[in-house]
Simulated assay, not measured.
Amino acid sequence: MARVAFLGLGVMGFPMAGHLAAKGHEVTVWNRTAAKAEAWVAQHGGKSAATAREAAEGADFVMSCVGNDDDLRQVCLGENGAFAGMKAGAIYVDHTTVSAQVTRELSEIAAEKGIGFVDAPVSGGQAGAENGVLSVMCGGASDDYAKAEPVIAAYARICRLLGPSGAGQLTKMCNQIAIAGLVQGLSESLHFAEKAGLSIPEVVEVISQGAAGSWQMANRFQTMDENRFDFGFAVDWMRKDLGICLEAADANGASLPVTALVDQFYKEVQKMGGGRWDTSSLIARLRR
Rank of each mutant, 00 (worst) to 15 (best):
K267D: 13
S199F: 10
S107K: 03
A88Q: 13
D241R: 01
L198R: 09
M63F: 14
D144L: 00
K147M: 10
A2W: 06
V269L: 09
V122R: 02
E268W: 13
L161Q: 04
S48M: 12
M137H: 10
V41R: 11
A156V: 03
L282K: 11
L161G: 06
E188C: 09
G128S: 11
G45H: 05
L72F: 02
V27F: 06
A284K: 15
Q126T: 13
I158E: 13
D71Q: 09
E149L: 04
A211K: 10
G232M: 01
G253K: 05
A178W: 12
E54G: 07
S187T: 11
G81E: 00
E57T: 08
E57I: 04
L182R: 15
G273T: 07
V102C: 00
L77W: 02
T33F: 09
V11L: 14
L7I: 12
K271D: 13
S64K: 00
W40M: 06
H25G: 02
M238F: 05
Q169V: 06
G18Q: 12
V118K: 00
A17H: 10
L162S: 08
M217G: 01
T33M: 10
Q126C: 09
V151I: 11
V29P: 04
A234R: 15
K240H: 03
P257S: 07
Q74A: 14
I158R: 13
T223H: 14
T33E: 04
V29T: 11
E268G: 09
W277K: 07
G140E: 01
D71M: 04
T51Y: 04
K147G: 03
G197R: 09
L161N: 05
T223Q: 14
Q126E: 15
F233I: 07
A22V: 12
K172F: 09
A110M: 03
T33S: 13
L170M: 14
E112F: 02
G45D: 03
A180R: 09
L182D: 15
R287A: 13
E188Q: 05
G45Q: 09
M137N: 02
A50M: 11
G67M: 14
W237D: 10
C138I: 06
K147E: 07
I179N: 15
I91C: 02
V27W: 04
E226Q: 15
I115Q: 00
V206F: 15
I207K: 10
Q43G: 06
E194Q: 15
Y145V: 02
F14H: 04
